[in-house]
Design a protein around this nucleic acid. Sequence first.
DNA 1: AAGAGACTCAACCGCCAGACT
DNA 2: TAGTCTGGCGGTTGAGTCTCT
Length: 307
Amino acid sequence: MGRNSSSQQKPKLRKGLWSPDEDEKLLNHITKHGHGCWSAIPKLAGLQRCGKSCRLRWINYLRPDLKRGTFTQEEEDLIIELHAVLGNKWSQIAAHLPGRTDNEIKNLWNSSLKKKLRQRGIDPTTHKPLSEENMSLTNTDERSPTGTYVDNKCTATCSYKTTPVDMFLLDDNVPNPFGNISFPLSSHGFEVNSGFGYENAIPNIPSVVHQDSSSESLGFPNVANSIWCDMRHDCSFFDSNHLPWIEEITTNQDDQVGVGMGTGMGIGIGIEADCLGQSLSLPIEMQNHTISLFDESKGLNMTQQLF
DNA sequence: AAGAGACTCAACCGCCAGACT
DNA sequence: TAGTCTGGCGGTTGAGTCTCT
């Protein structure tokens, strides 16, 4: 088929910005009939656009569930955390921000977030310090002056707090609160091979935390196997939208230990335990791909390899 | 007030993978 | 099995807007 005959059969497709009239046609059509086959939409909706263009316009602008307006600080922090894990997988990042599009996030990253990270001395590509001279760090596994840990394998930063955060401790009589939760980073959990936890209690994250009978090596008698953590405060990409049950958890069940930990780039912040009625707080530190628990007074010093 | 440069963001382009023929 | 179609994705572009001098 020659060029001429082709151009005679196909009307010339419009390009560039969409007019309000075109928007209305596309919106009306999809509202009434759904989008179905995108390549058929232009003809059915009376538009001189290609199917791809219609799809893009719908996804990035016309979709009714889009969130308008500027990104919140929480959203920006979440994008940075996710980018550290996922890289330029904008669609996967967008999947964790309801109402935001991959295009929008990509634009934000390229126009603003990259610059902010550089200003903080962080390479936006690797999420490592831009220059060791500038950061007064000689080892990326050490805590930075701003209280941030940078892990040299997972290549991300993790907010650090020295104080224990609200932990919630469960026992076997407490219903599993994770039952209906869609976990935000389902494919990027890290693995803790021993210590604490409740295997398979978090759906969609296989083996994030394993139960391990060696828990007693920590020195806590009767350590239960129901150990959970508040990721909302520790890791900025966990928020109450993802963990709506958080306010309802009963804390400080006797004879149990709570462990703070995150997944993906978010690594544990604190540990709070209530053993035999004695409250105990411990820091967790992350270095060299490990998570460590320390308490000199209890003779506790455990380091767990994460990766 | 005006011009230049920086910034924003909507949209396009090319590539890829999966479905279908 | 190979070719074609389609949808989805990330990279890039460029027009419009904003900010600074």
